[in-house]
Design a protein around this nucleic acid. Structure first.
Lengths: 177, 177
DNA sequence: GCATAAGCGGAGGCAGCCTCCGTATATTTA
DNA sequence: TAAATATACGGAGGCTGCCTCCGCTTATGC
């Protein structure tokens, strides 16, 4: 790839992330191109469809999430699991505007991002298995349960991390006495 | 309101509900007008903005939900609360495509639908108070907690009522042992 | 039946989507 | 270093959907 092409690609990705975060996935692609200082033609050559652009932005975010996962410490399995779920919440919130797309990627095996999801799933699955071994969580809990509820919580109070954390704890601890 | 106007209004509402359910809130308004057998002008006179149309559709759904609430039986408070949350899940699922709008109405006091939400909130609040009295739920649980988690669950597995019910029960019972 | 208030509908201006292709520039080669 | 060429750029233009405006139509009251 030519140097100018790579440069434009990066700038488009940056501006797209900002625009999607501000205005949601319906942000004008012409505006994104303008913000990146290129013509629409260039945008469409790099990202033939809006979906391609969205996916490219998400791919970046997945990297960040995978990095977080690698840095997790594994003292108490129950606490480790909670920490990981909380980290996911923060990442999803940082991906404001794309939460719905993220959820599609997670739930739909057809998604081109599903492969990257798998890596994160396996982190969840490992932590979950450890937590089950030590009896920290109920044995019928599954990794998809966790993925789904985390996305549900992240989406339903997208702009309020405090409430997200509260709902996560309610979920973990239960509501019925 | 003239008879023909009322007729067109109703038909537009019906078609809009169908279109939003099928294609989401971005469904073409011209298509909706066509499906209802009227010109776009008529659609825009009745519903000056897309938002107005969405809100009108939701208003209908709220009525249905309020009716469900009135029919609730109040034997065991814990069970009654669960039944009400489950009923909400079903209604939100039936409002497929508008879940996000619904959540906005619930969370944003500025929304023109917030008034109708209040009626439903008070049902939740009553059931919640009763459940607390009998010690069926933890005392720090709030009505907004419930509203938010229900929407999160409904949204995160929009098309799978079985998983919705499972997640609701996980939430109620808790995950940590 | 007529007058008129109320309602209808689609033409048209505008914005954003996406394609296409002439122009410009990075890279390779001699 | 300069020519050759592969690669990339960018915006004009066709298209679709949004929304407004206003001349035409029709229900309703007298």
């Amino acid at each position: 790839m030519r140097a100018d092409a790579r440069r434009n690609y990066e700038r488009l990705l940056t501006e797209a992330g900002a625009a999607f975060g501000e205005k949601g996935t319906e942000a004008s692609l012409e505006d994104i191109a303008k913000a990146a200082g290129v013509g629409v033609g260039t945008l469409y050559r790099h990202f033939p469809t809006r979906q391609d652009l969205i996916l490219a932005v998400l791919r970046d975010r997945f990297e960040a999430m995978a990095a977080t996962a690698r840095d997790l410490t594994f003292d108490d399995p129950g606490r480790a699991l909670r920490a990981w779920l909380l980290a996911q919440l923060h990442h999803i919130t940082a991906t404001r505007g794309l939460t719905a797309e993220l959820a599609v990627a997670v739930n739909n095996p057809e998604s081109p991002l599903h492969g990257q999801c798998e890596a994160l799933f396996s982190v969840s699955a490992d932590l979950l298995a450890k937590a089950k071994e030590t009896g920290a969580v109920r044995p019928d809990l599954t990794q998809p349960d966790l993925a789904t509820i985390v996305h549900g919580i992240a989406w339903s109070c997208e702009s309020d991390p405090v409430r997200q954390e509260r709902l996560l704890d309610l979920f973990l601890e239960g509501v019925l006495v």
